[in-house]
């Protein structure tokens, strides 16, 4: 089983921090225009959100694993709900590598695997070093082509 790059934690913690700041801003807005919110409570809620978010991010990193098995891409992830997904290579429609601005700043990319399914139709593996992401994309593409089925939808 392969883990994600450790720097993904920074990305996830940063995302939580942004959420916490937005939450704080909402509280400040409520405080100014609607009703008084005690400052201690405000700081407390934001701090708790930040801590929970950071713990969640770290736990998610510990849980996140993926593997190329003989017939399928296999992934394990999830903190609250633990999810194990198998994406058979035959079902891969196309593979993308993507990265957002924060990911790029951290030197990370994501690989997104698309299937024709209705749920989990796009499976994303975040937090890979760009080289590994490209590698994985190539491998998946080759495996998908090799195992192509003739019953495409």
């Amino acid at each position: 089983m392969e883990s994600l790059h450790p720097r993904i934690r920074i990305l996830w913690v940063a995302q939580t921090a942004i959420m916490a700041i937005v939450l704080g801003a909402v509280f400040v807005a409520i405080d100014r225009w609607i009703t008084a919110v005690p400052t201690a409570g405000l700081v407390g809620v934001v701090a708790v959100a930040l801590v929970l978010g950071a713990a969640y991010a770290i736990r998610l990193y510990q849980v996140w694993q993926f593997e190329l098995q003989p017939d399928a891409l296999y992934l394990e992830r999830g903190v609250i709900t633990f999810v194990e997904t198998a994406v058979p290579f035959v079902r891969v429609q196309h593979v993308d590598t993507q990265f957002g601005p924060i990911e790029r700043a951290l030197g990370l990319s994501s690989v997104v695997v698309y299937t024709a399914g209705s749920r989990n139709a796009d499976v994303r593996i975040p937090g890979l070093p760009p080289n590994r992401a490209r590698d994985l994309q190539d491998t998946l593409r080759q495996l998908a082509v090799e195992s192509e089925a003739d019953d495409a939808v």
């Binding site: 633990f82 194990e84 299937t115 399914g117 499976v123």
Partner: peptide, 16 residues
């Protein structure tokens, strides 16, 4: 079986 796209096992915190 040949129509399966993906298979996913899900376990929520309560199910676990």
């Amino acid at each position: 079986y040949y129509r399966i796209q993906t298979v996913t096992t899900r376990r929520s915190i309560f199910q676990r």
